[in-house]
Design a protein around this nucleic acid. Structure first.
Lengths: 201, 201
DNA sequence: GCCTAAGTACACAGGTCTGTGTAATCAAAA
DNA sequence: TTTTGATTACACAGACCTGTGTACTTAGGC
């Protein structure tokens, strides 16, 4: 399969580079000069496409706001696959936590625009979980969806400081318990994780 | 009961103020001038107590590294009380996430000293959970402890962006399910959260 | 009264940052 | 060929940052 095409327009090239640097090194740590130099353009060109660094930051976060693509797998599988995907991302050396959480942590509570995008993103993922749980006919999809996003964000935060992709596996196991507890069929009783061994009947 | 005593020594006053400003507004957002001005001392005095801003940052994080105080409550109660305590902290208007996660997010992967403290803190909390679970005789205390810290950090990250203390309740409910699944007695069957209603026997 | 330690006031060096102004260049469309 | 729009090179303003140098004041201990 073909590699992802190189960004075409100047605006896309700027966003692509800003994304890489902002995400890996932090928004406040990267100046617009650095971004322009990395692309090999003048600072003036950058400011011809974005009126301010703030605008560039907002565009960076909006570009990170990718919506989940539809899948024809069963909902329970989709939910658990989320954690496998997380584990793969943790294993990549260029993973540095959730860009939205990082931006809010970095830019403080004053930056309303950034916070708004972060809230929207978190909520969209929660709703994605909720929709899958509704398909499964779970009794309280809202509450369970919230618990699942806690596991997602918890494993991201833990991996950010510990660099340990196993956090995603731990989250997946916890999610499996929560799903099974809600009556969802998540495959064999292979990992009981019980306090006492259950005698085979 | 008496209010907490005002910091006595100059070093403590500096740390107290640095903590407040670093935590609420971000480490990079606060200059040493701002800290000195807030206390009403000269910048020179600050630099007489800390050789550099980096040293002040490290001292700030080390001061945040509070170890859990021993309790005589039963272990299961201690574990669940963690989430009640979290909820109270979320409700306070000056809560701004985990200072260690925020510092790592802000200062980037290069700052080894900061990352080291953050890892140590996260691990100390995981071990605290593990010790309580060991007291409870749980089969796999290590794995379950990791899952519990995911819920803690997940709720912190979610509250940071959403300002919703209910995240702590959601984490507590998930923790209850995980504990019960591991054979821990966590009180009545009051909240079954089951997929299908269980007929009373 | 005198000495020492701590703090103050304040300037400043040297660096970074965002954002702008200006004149020159280049390429493609008309 | 001429025009037009994008881009470049580069200087610069104004702000902020960390860290230092220096001379002055103040308060306690001897």
């Amino acid at each position: 399969m073909a590699p992802p095409p190189a960004p075409q327009t100047m605006k896309e090239r700027i966003l692509h580079t800003a994304d890489k640097l902002f995400y890996l090194q932090g928004i406040r740590a990267i100046g617009v000069d650095t971004i322009a130099a990395e692309i090999g353009i003048s600072k003036r060109t950058l400011y011809n496409h974005f009126p301010s660094k703030d605008a560039l930051i907002v565009a960076y976060l909006e570009r990170r706001f990718v919506h989940a693509s539809p899948s024809d797998k069963p909902p329970a599988e989709q939910i658990l696959a989320t954690f496998d995907s997380l584990e793969r991302r943790f294993a990549a050396k260029d993973f540095r936590g959730c860009p939205f959480v990082n931006a809010v942590a970095e830019l403080g509570p004053t930056d309303r625009a950034v916070k708004k995008i972060a809230i929207a993103f978190k909520e969209s993922r929660r709703l994605w979980f909720r929709d899958r749980l509704t398909e499964l006919g779970v009794a309280n999809p809202d509450a369970l969806a919230t618990q699942l996003v806690l596991l997602v964000d918890g494993s991201i935060a833990q991996d950010l400081v510990r660099d340990d992709p196993a956090m995603a596996r731990a989250a997946k196991e916890a999610a499996t318990v929560l799903l099974r507890n809600a009556g969802v069929d998540v495959g064999g009783d292979a990992k009981p994780a019980q306090g006492r061994k259950r005698p085979p009947r």
